[in-house]
Write a protein that binds this DNA or RNA. Structure first.
Lengths: 163, 163
DNA sequence: GCGCTGTGCTTGCAATTGCAAACGCGGCGA
DNA sequence: TCGCCGCGTTTGCAATTGCAAGCACAGCGC
């Protein structure tokens, strides 16, 4: 599993470069990498780091995310969705709010695409019923109020769907 | 400018790990990297490649994109079109999910604007200064469940209640 | 006291990245 | 014919990544 799509990322870069009708050296200069290295990348002999990849994306004027997906570095079906990017870029939100929105969004995505194939056999790092965590910040509780009825009630009864 | 945020990415990882209440070795194993290396990454002594970053993101169960942004590997050249537009444009969401997200977002905006408007908006969303900046209690997922398209899915949550 | 286990950190070392220099090839002007 | 320029490629080499092994410290049972 060391270098699965390294070839395809190289091919992809070469395609994009040729479509842009620029030479290898030109792209190398635009991207700030050496020509030999770019050559090796395009032929799949080297596995460029994300930094280089980012530079190349800039040189090609394409989205780095697209390139990362091609490289299998965002293999998460974590998608062409700009929602997360937009949330993170929104300066009006607090970090907490940002996290809430992103997490909600991701949970939506997870549910929509049903099951995952991740075979996590060891740690389950994320919050696992931790008594130390606060019960519920009311920030988003208020936000959820229109949807989840009983908040001011002090009792969030999850009917576990299936009302 | 080569490695300005290398430290911050390490800090960010360490924060996320500690919030998840797992040890360095646990995360290392979950992410499939060596403990010493993870230690060095967290302290900013090493600049992890995107592959490693991706693994760590998986181990932390957070978005790789978020981590890449933190690492400065995905620049903000991605059009930060406003959140609502992004949500509307996301074809992966159901109409109901979309509405929920938009509504939450708008209520967040209202709160933030009402509470303090004088904060500089162009500042980077550094969040470490927040004492109660927890990632996200998972109870809210349960609260959202009734609204999140409970179609072919039956595995989410339900374990968080009284076991 | 001793040993065991868990935490994070330090130390060499193989493998890899990424580059400067140089190479072979083809086209073009003198 | 030669020389020159641009193309992509090959070849060493410094710097870095990433790891196995081991270290220092703290807590717990004997």
């Amino acid at each position: 599993m060391a270098l699965p799509k390294v070839g395809s990322i190289g091919e992809y870069i070469r395609e994009q470069r040729q479509q842009a009708k620029i030479s290898l050296r030109q792209l190398a200069e635009a991207a700030g990498v050496s020509n030999p290295y770019l050559s090796q990348i395009e032929r799949g002999l080297r596995k460029p780091s994300a930094e280089i990849l980012n530079q190349i994306a800039k040189g090609l004027r394409i989205s780095s995310q697209v390139l990362y997906v091609q490289a299998g570095l965002i293999e998460d079906r974590e998608p062409p969705s700009d929602v997360i990017a937009a949330i993170r870029a929104d300066a009006h939100l607090s970090e907490r709010q940002r996290q809430v929105l992103i997490d909600i969004y991701e949970s939506f995505r997870k549910e929509t695409r049903a099951e995952d194939e991740q075979t996590s056999q060891n740690a389950r790092p994320r919050h696992a019923s931790d008594p130390d965590d606060e019960p519920l910040p009311e920030e988003y509780l208020a936000a959820l109020e229109p949807y989840a009825a009983p908040s001011s009630n002090g009792n969030v009864t999850q009917e576990t769907k299936e009302g």
